[in-house]
Design a protein around this nucleic acid. Sequence first.
DNA 1: TTCGATTTGTGTATAAAATACACGGTTGCC
DNA 2: GGCAACCGTGTATTTTATACACAAATCGAA
Lengths: 252, 252
Amino acid sequence: MSESTNIKPVAKKSISVIQSEVQSTNKIALSVDCVIFGFEDNKLKVLLIRSDIKKYKGMWTLLGDLMQPDEDLDQAAYRILSERTGLDNVFLEQVHTFGSVDRHPAGRVITVAYYSLLNAQNHKLLTEANELHWHDVKEVSDLAFDHQEIFETCYKRLQKRILENPLGLNLLPKKFSLRDLQNLYESTLNTKLDRRNFRKKFFAMDLLTDTNEMEEGVPHRPGKLYQFNYKKYEKKKKSWTGIDFSSVGGSD
Amino acid sequence: MSESTNIKPVAKKSISVIQSEVQSTNKIALSVDCVIFGFEDNKLKVLLIRSDIKKYKGMWTLLGDLMQPDEDLDQAAYRILSERTGLDNVFLEQVHTFGSVDRHPAGRVITVAYYSLLNAQNHKLLTEANELHWHDVKEVSDLAFDHQEIFETCYKRLQKRILENPLGLNLLPKKFSLRDLQNLYESTLNTKLDRRNFRKKFFAMDLLTDTNEMEEGVPHRPGKLYQFNYKKYEKKKKSWTGIDFSSVGGSD
DNA sequence: TTCGATTTGTGTATAAAATACACGGTTGCC
DNA sequence: GGCAACCGTGTATTTTATACACAAATCGAA
């Protein structure tokens, strides 16, 4: 995963700009919204920004932007992620397109929702460069526009996907303990899992490599650290029906 | 399920009309394409129409249309279905949005793909009123535009969904034998299933009501006819995470 | 009217997968 | 040195999936 330090603070598009872009044509405008998940303090988080349009002043919203006519849909989603976070090569999957007539106060704007999984190691970069804040997914409420619905749809999708594919590894640092992994699953699925059975199941997938390193500085017996084994994953993936793990997700 | 007999033959939109609608704005146009599945002669079928634009002359395409600025996205999908088939209240689920820059020769058109499940009893109505033809899903190839990809994406989605939900019942007449149901699953999943285990599993779901009627005119021991029990389904559905069965599908 | 072909309806034995559960070991901290 | 906290491991039980055989009903042909 490449990391870039030159994150551009993104100039917010004023509502008048959006209005002119939308209404000048009396046509439908298209935007992309990204639900960006991260994992910090053993909690699943989502990245939000404050709305600056009058109707929703001060409320939180997802990260999004209008599509450009000369970019592919997936490219637009990548662009938004890249502009906001400085990261590329992150996991991204299209989820659903929302198109109620009245979903946007500035006019007819249809939005394609994606979710994305970011490695926690890059959190600090993000929140400094833009006015972004991580929110515990359990506490997300009253988002602006229809973003609450979009968020919930994407969150459900993630919960479903993580049971079918080892996507969660995108959220963890390169080296992690099995407890880290279990915490991720538990906070994503909002449930408790049996520690021994979780181990058994994950090891049976045979996707983890023992780094021969241990946790350090923990006030208890330290756990082994593992790495995700991409090669094994790529081999197995062929026999699965699942989506791609490390780049843009397919359509299902 | 309501049935209407006044199916409107839909005037085809010429490419010049599409071009003017798209290019006059130098913006992005939005369309909806529907992958309409049916079940006939124990084969899963898909409804296609011939393309009339020059580049793809004579090739088959999905049923689609440009969105209107004053209709919801889901409404647009319903409208297309209704205009083409005269049926409403059919199963419909949004699948994916396709937005490559060059996917449409007339300009920038992004399309939202839905799939739909139609009851075979209404087939005749359909194909007479429009230039529509049912195609065995096994023989669909070389569709115009990117419709081959759209078709395959929607077909995969259906295959996945039918394993999670009893959606297939939308494709059968009101009364059907368990063999009909198994044939539907086998042709949808392109596989053979064990007859006894299939029965066991479906009866365990407890969604079928015995009509106390039997097949007639079959050259073998006749099977019982069943009906789908919507009430039981609605009760069970609440405890599932799945999508709605009998109307517009949710987002996942 | 009998026979053959075909398909229905049913139950059990086996294998695989998911779940429940306990104890000894290592570390930091007091 | 002892306590608190968590790691690492295996087995028994339940649930679910799979494999598989035979008697009965209908049609059509002889």
